[in-house]
Amino acid sequence: GSASGGPDEAVRQADRLAKDAGAPASGTAAAFVNAARELGMTRVSLATPYDEAQTETLAGYLRAAGFDVVRAVAGGPASPAEAAGWNAEAQAKLVREAAEPGPDGVLLACTALRTAAHIPQLEVAAGRPVLTANQVSVWEALRLAERRVREPALGTLFTVLPPVRG
């Protein structure tokens, strides 16, 4: 689902999809919120390959979800095909810019960005946790399936273990 309708609309979309599918559902914007909360983030920065208007839409979504968005960096406009071609250094440059003035973490939006192989590099560049669109989408799917994977190569998010139940 899109972030343009805000968090409440994202929940409605996921609820409709879950009802139709007979299984839990979510979206990438909601996954960013859930993952950031999992890491205890309250102050976040946003980095996107989008234009300023699209970036502000996502920043507004995050604000409506209760986050203090300390910076929103628009690195585009990039089409999905262009964003898919951004290498690790181009992504690191964007997260470094967004990492100032010291948020709890940086959210790197856009499912077209190929980030999985270098999330640890992005976290080093930012000096704090970085959450990427595909990373949080996979994490959210695992969370909804009540599964956890501990894999530091996938970033700080994949080092957090769930609370012990019982």
Rank of each mutant, 00 (worst) to 15 (best):
P80W: 09
E140Q: 14
W86E: 08
P24N: 04
E97L: 10
A125E: 05
D68Q: 15
T28P: 02
A125Q: 03
E100G: 13
P101C: 04
L144W: 02
R63M: 11
L39E: 09
A84H: 08
A65F: 09
A29Q: 03
P80G: 07
L46M: 09
G85T: 14
A126H: 06
G75V: 05
A53R: 15
E140K: 02
A92M: 02
A98Y: 10
P103A: 04
L144Q: 10
S137V: 00
T28S: 03
T132P: 00
T111I: 13
A36I: 09
Q135S: 07
G127Y: 07
L108Q: 09
D68G: 13
H118N: 14
A133W: 01
E123M: 06
A47D: 09
G105N: 10
T48D: 04
E89S: 12
A90V: 09
A133E: 00
E140P: 06
A47Y: 03
E146V: 01
A72H: 11
A125I: 05
S26L: 03
Q121M: 10
T42I: 08
A78D: 13
A145N: 08
T42H: 14
A35I: 02
P77A: 10
H118V: 03
V33W: 05
Q121S: 11
M41I: 09
G75T: 08
R43K: 15
E140V: 00
Q91D: 09
F32R: 02
F67K: 08
T115N: 09
G85H: 13
S45G: 11
E52D: 15
N34D: 15
V138F: 11
A133C: 01
G85L: 14
Y61C: 05
F67M: 05
V95E: 01
G60T: 08
P80F: 07
V138W: 04
V138E: 07
G60Y: 10
A99H: 07
R128F: 02
